[in-house]
Design a protein around this nucleic acid. Structure first.
Lengths: 250, 250
DNA sequence: CGATGGATATCGCAC
DNA sequence: GTGCGATGTCCATCG
């Protein structure tokens, strides 16, 4: 039934492994190679990984992953857009991934191939993700009083010389307000971001009014709180989990 | 020879698949499951991924990856430290990954399992990576004139109320200098970082001398350059590739 | 193509 | 455990 979708070979000799990889690649399948290998990488940085057992995944979009038995992040990789090639050198399977811009190359040399599989995938479903900063923004626009009593949003992604502001609006007194949103606890970087926007907008609007800055996030670190104070910026706490559990705005 | 290291089953029924996954997990092997599945995730955010073919990887450290035929980043995942479980519900294989702190859960429900493999890995080799910011720092400490004629480094990771400074030293006039390093082209964020250090150190040393700030990187964006100017900070260009190609300092 | 900033970022280190 | 910053970050969006 699914035999044409999957092919698996255990302990292939190098030439058989090369053929399986080349076949799978040509058929736009995902190819996995499990075996003992060394990995060399050269590009934005350079690396060498000595011999060990790893799982190598080749995707038809040019992605190449080298996974060890630990970590979420691959120990070596090539991003989408690379060209894969499988050859036999010195009686060893060698898988190469090359891309340009930036110029990068990864070479995986197998001392032993324990398994090669080719997996023909059909997948057109997109991920539906909830709880991002964009979702938080929408909830706050639906109920601006959560930011501040009387706050009126006027624009999102408003452009300033320092970049785009998450939410731009006016407070109860009609003074301009810049709101920077974060979906999780923030450190000094977010304060710097907000301060850049406030400073830029202050200059843009010149002396019409003083621009206020509000950082909206679940919480802030001590250092961030000190920086907020130093720059005369405000902080408003929001619980993003509340929006996750109760997406309806009453 | 390596038959005990690899086990592969094609088109297993749900119970056989569950057993294979449970077996591999118990033996601390890496387990791959290829099949048509739905994925639900709930934790820091929430997501739903409709039916499609994906490659699921379970690592003995608790990592769980769900890969589609595209992208370097898994469409869904669980970081190391999760607990894996395989069950059969409604005649379907269900793989669950749960972790605490943060409280997160991923559920992969298979409509069809095309292949299950268990891969016993032996890997004690660490990655040797060259071309990081730490490498760049070492090269600059070996030849401080690359930063500025007469610059003398006094400390690395010097602590300030705003965080640790990459390189702290004195210029030819004996005035204090803060150096912030980046291994690639930088934007406004790095300028903010440098400015926080300079401001904090200026305050710390009070009126003894004016602290200078130097951003050392391959290049800067226009916005970053404007910010540097605005804050009276300097920029020095370095080519990290030069260090990569010629690690010997002349 | 570069610039900018988000991410379920992950990861390592210092406290 | 939290805080902080680097990452071969990756990635989408927008100009």
């Amino acid at each position: 039934m699914t035999a044409d979708r999957v092919s698996a070979r255990t302990d292939p000799d190098p030439e058989a492994a090369r053929e399986a990889v080349a076949d799978g690649t040509a058929r736009e399948a995902v190819v996995t190679v499990f075996g003992r290998c060394e990995v060399e990488y050269d590009g934005r940085a350079s690396s060498y990984l000595g011999p060990g057992d790893r799982l190598v995944v080749l995707k038809p979009d040019g992605t190449l992953l080298v996974h060890t038995e630990e970590q979420r992040t691959p120990v070596n990789w090539q991003p989408p857009g690379s060209e894969h090639e499988a050859t036999v050198e010195d009686d060893s399977l060698v898988v190469t991934g090359v891309r340009e811009s930036p110029d990068e190359r990864i070479v995986v040399r197998f001392a032993d191939v324990h398994q090669v599989s080719t997996l023909a995938m059909a997948d057109e479903r997109d991920l539906e993700l909830v709880g991002t900063e964009a979702d938080l923004k929408q909830h706050l626009l639906d109920d601006p009083d959560r930011i501040e009593e009387g706050f009126r949003p006027l624009a999102t992604e408003r452009e300033t010389p320092a970049g785009a502001v998450d939410i731009y609006g006016e407070d109860a007194d009609g003074d301009p307000v810049v709101v920077e949103l974060k979906r999780r606890r923030v450190g000094p970087d977010a304060v710097g971001q907000l301060d850049r926007y406030v400073t830029a907008l202050d200059r843009d609007l010149h002396a019409d009014a003083t621009v206020r800055g509000i950082l909206v996030a679940p919480s802030v670190t001590d250092r961030a709180a000190a920086l907020l104070d130093e720059h005369g910026l405000s902080f408003v706490s929001v619980d993003p989990a509340a929006d996750l559990d109760a997406p309806r705005a009453e």
